[in-house]
Simulated scan of single mutants.
Amino acid sequence: MYSNIIVPLAFDEDHNPDTALNVTRALAAPGARVTLVHVMADVPGYAISYMPEGYGAELRATLQKQLDQLAGEFENGAGVLRQGHPANEILDLIEEIGADCVVVASHRPGMGDYLIGSTAARVVRHAPCSVMVLR
Rank of each mutant, 00 (worst) to 15 (best):
G72W: 03
G79W: 00
E95H: 13
E58H: 12
E58N: 14
M40F: 02
A78H: 00
P128M: 08
A71G: 03
P86T: 04
R108W: 02
V123P: 07
R82M: 10
N76H: 15
L91K: 10
H126I: 03
A78F: 00
L81K: 00
V80A: 08
G45T: 15
A29L: 08
D113K: 03
R33V: 08
R82C: 05
M111S: 01
P52A: 08
G45S: 14
H126M: 06
H126L: 09
F74T: 06
P30F: 02
A29W: 04
A127G: 13
A29H: 10
H38F: 09
T35E: 01
G112I: 08
S118I: 08
C101Y: 02
S106R: 03
D92T: 13
R82N: 03
L93F: 12
A121P: 01
D113E: 07
D42P: 05
V37F: 03
P128A: 10
N88F: 10
C101T: 05
L70N: 02
E89F: 11
R108P: 06
T62P: 01
I97K: 01
A28L: 07
E53H: 14
D100S: 09
V123I: 15
D113A: 12
L91C: 07
V123W: 15
G45P: 08
V103L: 12
Q64E: 14
V34P: 12
D113N: 10
H85M: 09
V103F: 02
A87G: 04
Q69W: 00
I94C: 06
M111C: 01
C129S: 10
V39P: 00
D42I: 12
A105H: 11
G117R: 01
D100C: 06
Q83M: 08
H85E: 12
Y55G: 14
L115Q: 01
P52G: 07
A61W: 02
H85L: 11
M51F: 05
G56R: 06
I94Q: 06
G54I: 13
V102I: 04
G112Y: 03
M51A: 13
G110W: 00
G72N: 07
M40E: 07
V124R: 08
K65S: 14
G79S: 08
A47D: 09
L93R: 04
M51V: 13
G54S: 12
E95K: 15
L93G: 06
Q66S: 12
L91Y: 11
F74P: 02
L81D: 00
H85W: 01
L63F: 03
G117P: 09
